[in-house]
Simulated scan of single mutants.
Amino acid sequence: MAELRVGLGDRSYPIHIEPGCLDRVGAELSKSRIGNRYAVVSDSNVAKLYGERLLNILDSAGISARMFTFVAGEENKTMATVTDLASQLARAGYDRHDAIIALGGGVTGDIAGFLASAYMRGIPFIQIPTTLLSQVDSSVGGKTGVDLPEGKNLVGAFYQPRAVYIDTEVLQTLDDQELLGGLAEVIKYGVIWDEGFFMFLEKERERIFSLAPEVIVDMITRCCAIKAEVVAEDEREGGLRKILNYGHTIGHAVEGASSFQLIHGLAVSIGMVAAARLSILKGTLAQDVLDRITSILISYGMPTEIPGDLDRAEIKRYLKTDKKAVSGKVQFVLPDKIGSTYITDDVSVDLIDQVLN
Rank of each mutant, 00 (worst) to 15 (best):
S30C: 14
K203S: 12
L266Q: 12
V140D: 01
A116S: 12
K188T: 05
A257R: 02
D311V: 11
I270S: 07
A157N: 09
L183E: 01
L49A: 15
L4R: 12
A102K: 01
D176M: 04
W193D: 00
G20E: 09
G247R: 00
L310Q: 09
E214R: 15
I63C: 11
A27E: 15
I111C: 05
T249H: 09
K227L: 09
I298Q: 13
E185Q: 09
T144M: 10
D23Y: 13
L29G: 15
V231N: 08
M272L: 08
D84Y: 07
L281D: 08
L103G: 12
D234G: 08
D218I: 00
I57M: 11
K320V: 11
A275W: 01
I306F: 01
A286H: 06
G256D: 02
R241M: 06
L148V: 03
I298T: 12
D175T: 02
C224R: 07
Y342G: 03
F125V: 01
T294L: 09
K143S: 05
I296Y: 03
L115W: 01
D309S: 13
C224Y: 09
T221H: 14
L290M: 08
V186W: 00
A286F: 00
A257H: 02
T131F: 08
G156V: 05
N153Y: 04
A61K: 11
L4E: 14
G113H: 02
A276E: 02
K242H: 04
R5Q: 12
Y300Q: 06
V140S: 03
G20D: 07
A225N: 15
Q135E: 13
L334M: 13
Q261W: 06
D346W: 01
K152L: 08
G301L: 11
N357F: 08
L356T: 03
L334G: 03
G238C: 10
R5F: 15
A228M: 15
I352M: 10
I123A: 05
F209H: 15
T108K: 04
F260Q: 10
T344C: 12
A225V: 03
V330F: 02
R312Y: 13
R33D: 13
G256Y: 00
D291R: 12
D110E: 03
S269N: 07
L285P: 00
D95Q: 14
L183A: 03
I226S: 06
Q172W: 04
R207V: 08
A47D: 07
V155W: 04
M79T: 14
R33M: 14
S32C: 07
A90D: 14
V215K: 15
E233F: 10
G190Q: 11
M199T: 09
R24A: 07
V333S: 08
A27H: 12
Q287S: 06
V146K: 07
V347Y: 00
I270Q: 04
S12E: 09
Y189Q: 05
K324G: 07
I192V: 05
P161N: 15
V170I: 10
E206V: 08
G265T: 04
D10L: 12
Y318Q: 07
D291P: 00
F200H: 13
R241L: 08
R207S: 09
A86N: 07
V217D: 05
I57H: 10
R66V: 04
G151L: 06
